[in-house]
Amino acid sequence: MTDKFISIEGIAKRYPGANGGTTTVFENFWLSMNRGEFGCVIGHSGCGKTTVLNILAGLDEPSEGTVIVDGQGIEGTSLDRAVIFQGHALFPWRTVLGNVAYAVTSKWRKWDRARVKAHAQKFIDLVGLTGSEHKRPSELSGGMKQRVGIARALSITPKIMLMDEPFSALDALTRGTLQDEVRRICLETGQTAFMITHDVDEAIYLADKIFLMTNGPGAVLAEIVENPLPKDRGRIDLHRHPYYYALRNHIVDFLVSRSKTFAAENPGHDPRNVPVVRPGLVEPAIVAPPRAVDSNPSQAIAR
């Protein structure tokens, strides 16, 4: 238990439902991650992914259970756990530097201006926004705004970086470059990160561990998929890796069919000991070889 950096222990989330009952989004939910790991949660909408992240961030409270981070149970939000929001959530009345500096002064209240500025500048440089410090968010593109969001989250040197579909509002090209940035920064700094995504390829590229959640209500963590691809994988040639399709097919199969039927098919599923899967062996080809095509009769006549 001590080696686990993040440990979500048996949390549940219930809402008062219609006619006096309660709706359980998920219950008895266990999840753990080691320091320096990148974890991605994949699941369909409504499975409670965002709720899990919000509980981890301290923005939401579980109805049951606890979350332990670095040996301490969490209570509310903390500067140890930075959140990168889906809609970037920058303050439009502040400049890029002002937005990052706001986070810096929140963490180190006694720092003087020059020190705050230098520290903020370091992280603006890190995300590649040097030269745009004095622009307002309205003058930035969507990708640049999210870069500021990343800089703001990193500037407080959090223990964990929490991301709720951070790139889903961006176009494919921008998303790609930002994924590269996030991967580079996390590898360089050994940052522990927890991310929610809908994008299977994003998870394959970024995550060390991929957490598959079944459909809600009553969602469970079905499987932990260990990423078999090498650490130095590149986004461009990801799909050329021999294990790539095995991994991708495994996740897509889960999302397409098993996420619905998992609970019924696995009555003995123990949420505390979720099976760890490491796709890599060549799976049997699921696509049947193409049948011999009959010669087209109309063509035969024409001839």
């Binding site: 961030a57 923005l59 509310g76 939000t77 500067l79 930075a82 929001f85 959530a89 706001y102 929140s106």
Partner: peptide, 12 residues
């Protein structure tokens, strides 16, 4: 906006 409040909350 709730997001802005949440930013302030996560920054304690």
């Amino acid at each position: 906006r709730k997001d802005w409040i949440n930013v302030a909350r996560t920054l304690e």
